[in-house]
Write a protein that binds this DNA or RNA. Sequence first.
DNA 1: TACCATCCCTTGTGTCACAAGGGTAGGCAC
DNA 2: GTGCCTACCCTTGTGACACAAGGGATGGTA
Lengths: 115, 115
Amino acid sequence: MADTETDLLRSSLDLLVLKALNWGPMHGYGISEWIEHATASLLLLEEGTLYPALHRLERRGWITSEWGVSGNNRRAKFYRLTTAGRARFRAQAPLWHRHAEAIAVALRRTSPEPV
Amino acid sequence: MADTETDLLRSSLDLLVLKALNWGPMHGYGISEWIEHATASLLLLEEGTLYPALHRLERRGWITSEWGVSGNNRRAKFYRLTTAGRARFRAQAPLWHRHAEAIAVALRRTSPEPV
DNA sequence: TACCATCCCTTGTGTCACAAGGGTAGGCAC
DNA sequence: GTGCCTACCCTTGTGACACAAGGGATGGTA
């Protein structure tokens, strides 16, 4: 029984990750923290969702990764936006907004016919 | 390769169908027309998506169906909102808006930190 | 008669979030 | 030291579901 939260995450996860990395290189744990924080904890990101997503984005060439050391002195894999990833975000984000807005309008209509 | 359009549809299809039926009983074909029309054709509804969705909603008790005759004098199955379906929409629609809005805000942030 | 539009349906197939598991290593309390 | 918590990384089922591509029936119209 899919809930709205899960499916909205599905629609926006890639974009949210790209947006997070727009602030600079970040490791997976940090990305998930940023997303929860940036959505006021409305979106909770399971690790089994996050890591496959990162690998997917890397496979597609939107991001690259590199091992490093976190601020807590721990081994961490840092992700960084590629040029293609930046372009991807610029192209896809407006589409997301457009479609989401169209749905929002439809759900709020007060008359079945066009106005 | 999932696109935003498909996944946003996934997040809102049930709600859109319930919303369509809020205007009164409607057959499947009419529902799909209304949704495309209400979203300015941004969302295209495949038949292989629509009919399973209708059966799903019926199984869950949000809608009921009844065979009848369409305005074009064709055999058609008319769907109608149940009380539970109406309640479902009232409960879920605000959740959809809240989550979508949270994502929209996150995607538009101009600073990584809270304001 | 032929064709199109209007309606309904099903069976693969692929994608993906999630649950539930597993692992390593730093820091701190005792 | 030992134990525990937190910060990090990962994988393998499983289930849900949109989609593509098929199929079918019938009314109106040319």
